[in-house]
């Protein structure tokens, strides 16, 4: 069966690189599934859940803002965060959410800073969401 080469890179390094059968991306216009021989495609992604199907296994990752390039044989994901569901530490993320909310509530940040805090809050929330859904679902 045809496979896709999936590469996920973040500024901290390469997060994932493997041949997979299907990828589901959180694109800005809505979730989209990508199979091999997809038409060449380029889009932005927003913080959300990225699903990888490989040999009957399903892998869930939380990703941040970024870009995706799809060719017939490849999916390249550039994101500012990519973390596997297993690696998410719920306690630490909750603390981060708490801190970010407090920082936003104080309202003493510059526009640049508050944008950054909001972005990191969105990233944390995505991680939490993914973790909880996997646990209960």
């Amino acid at each position: 069966m045809a496979t896709l080469r999936l590469e996920i890179v973040t500024p901290e390094g390469r997060a994932y690189s493997d041949d997979v059968e299907m990828v589901v991306l959180p694109a800005v216009e809505g979730e989209m599934g990508v199979l091999p021989m997809h038409v060449p495609f380029m889009t932005q992604i927003k913080p959300g859940e990225l699903v990888v199907r490989k040999g009957g296994d399903t892998l869930h990752l939380a990703v941040g803002d970024g870009f995706v390039e799809v060719t017939q044989t490849q999916v390249n994901v550039l994101a500012d965060m990519a973390i596997e569901e297993k690696a998410i530490d719920e306690g630490a993320v909750e603390a981060a959410v708490q801190r970010a909310r407090e920082a936003l509530a104080r309202k003493d940040l510059g526009s640049e800073e508050s944008a950054a805090v909001e972005a990191s809050l969105a990233r944390s929330l995505v991680q939490l969401q993914l973790k909880r859904r996997r646990k209960h679902g």
Binding site: R5, E7, A27, V28, E29, V39, P40, F41, M42, T43, Q44, F67, T71, Q72, T73, Q74
Partner: peptide, 27 residues
């Protein structure tokens, strides 16, 4: 990462941009 570079000059592959090329470029 230089493997499998898409040959854009062939014109065989046309990217579809979402929401639009301008917006992706802007970002």
């Amino acid at each position: 990462i230089d493997d499998a570079v898409v040959d854009v000059k062939d014109g065989g592959l046309e990217y579809i941009f979402e929401p639009s090329q301008g917006e992706v470029l802007d970002a």
